[in-house]
Design a protein around this nucleic acid. Structure first.
Lengths: 132, 132
DNA sequence: CGGCTGACTTCGAGTCAGTGGAAGACATTG
DNA sequence: CAATGTCTTCCACTGACTCGAAGTCAGCCG
């Protein structure tokens, strides 16, 4: 089963523009039909979904390209791929911690405003205000 | 107490370049000395630290500029600022959840590789590999 | 057969949030 | 008086898209 760029863009939820960008950058392989159009298969869909996750993890296009190249080289690169993923997992864990800290900070800010709005404390809000 | 751009850049850990960029974009007010150099005070430092947090929360320069403008208008904008912060807090919470999901996904990937490396399961790794 | 539509193609420009560097102004120091 | 250092503005570059223009091709209608 093969797909046009429009079909897979709908299936994975990326724009055709973005998918073209990814193929041009070498993130995923694609063949062409006799009119030079990109042709994809069901494996492309899985691989694109993986790419989506890796991107959301903040991994750069270039790093994903390198990882993709390793995948295409087969068994011999298993260890290298494993090391890459472990590093990325650790970074993902760090990002969870940072996201939590930022959410805590925002919660504190909101709480502060609730106190001010309830006249429990005065509006000493914010340094910039005093320069107005 | 006043500070040069270099001094506050060291104190808050942003480059002078970035701080210049922020003042030009209207994120924080600054006066100038007789040689047209930017002059900051201790409140600028606090405000810059706040900006840093808001940026880490993924809030755009333009949104921070709008929030900053509200702050400078004083009491009358308290409610609006509160609503803004609540919205940002909710987005921060959403990002924590998403970060957790991604970390879980990476953990799953790493686990999968460990299984493959231990020969517990074969290397069916990754769709792209088969096109190589 | 001519013309239209629609999906594709490439390529160049724009976006955001900086980053980097050149060229010029000024103050301090040797 | 020249060198050094820090500032100033301005313009170009980055990454990861995003948008739009212009061209190509297949299928379909009258």
């Amino acid at each position: 089963m093969t797909y046009t760029i429009k079909e897979i863009s709908e299936k994975v939820g990326l724009t055709a523009h973005t998918i073209r960008f990814y193929t041009d950058k070498g993130l995923l392989p694609c063949s062409r039909d006799k009119n030079n159009r990109r042709v994809f298969d069901s494996e492309s869909i899985n691989w694109l979904r993986t790419i989506q996750c890796l991107r959301k993890c903040g991994i750069s296009i270039e790093d994903i390209r390198a990882y993709s190249a390793l995948c295409m080289q087969g068994d011999s690169t298993l260890k290298a791929r494993y090391e890459f993923l472990k590093k990325q997992r650790d970074m993902a864990l760090k990002r969870v911690e940072e996201a939590k800290e930022l959410a805590d900070y925002m919660e504190y800010k909101v709480q502060h405003y609730e106190d001010v709005l309830a006249h429990r404390i005065p509006d000493d809000t914010n340094p910039a205000a005093k320069k107005a």
